[in-house]
Amino acid sequence: MANKPKVATCSLAGCFGCHMSLLDIDDRILKLVELVEFDRSPINDIKRIEGRCAIGIIEGGCCTEDNVHVLEHFREHCDVLVSTGDCATMGGIPALRNTIPLRECLEEAYLKGPSVYNPSGRLPGDPEIPLMLDKVYPCHEVVKIDYHLPGCPPSADAIWETLVALLSGKPLSLPYGLIKYD
């Protein structure tokens, strides 16, 4: 078992939908755990990559400095990074804020919005909360990404095909119908 390649996954600014789609490979997950060992992943709740990984699966784009930090950590510890889902590949739903300046976004959310109750009149600045970036960036604009898998989420089949190709060292070529942006 010690020689099994390791796979790490994480969700940055995403909704975990891509992880749900990964779980949607159904019984093929049994085959997957035969082939690989999971390092850091919400599936096993390991919080930080423990050893060198063959594949890193990134869900979500970079919305905060912490996202960037985690992504860079993945880049350093994974041989291959797969940007998975629309948030990772183009920013996705979180990137809807990209057309509005950050301060305006925060003021609308915490001060001016019609349903806001905020007696302090302050924007959140707790040190526990990572600083937000001016925009949400797709992962490939932050670190080098080896493979892209768009979709919201990418289908279980697309994820499966990708993992199989990567683990077997075959070239990745998704058939028409598996490349989706929706």
Binding site: D86, G92, H148, D182
Partner: peptide, 29 residues
């Protein structure tokens, strides 16, 4: 934002991306 666009699946730009095998644009957003 294809994920919530009503045109998704009938969109010619999206379809062109599919046909040309675009996984992610080479240009920055």
């Amino acid at each position: 934002f294809c994920m919530f666009c009503e045109k998704s699946g009938n969109c010619e730009l999206q379809a062109m991306g599919y046909r040309l095998g675009m996984l992610q644009p080479r240009h920055d957003y």
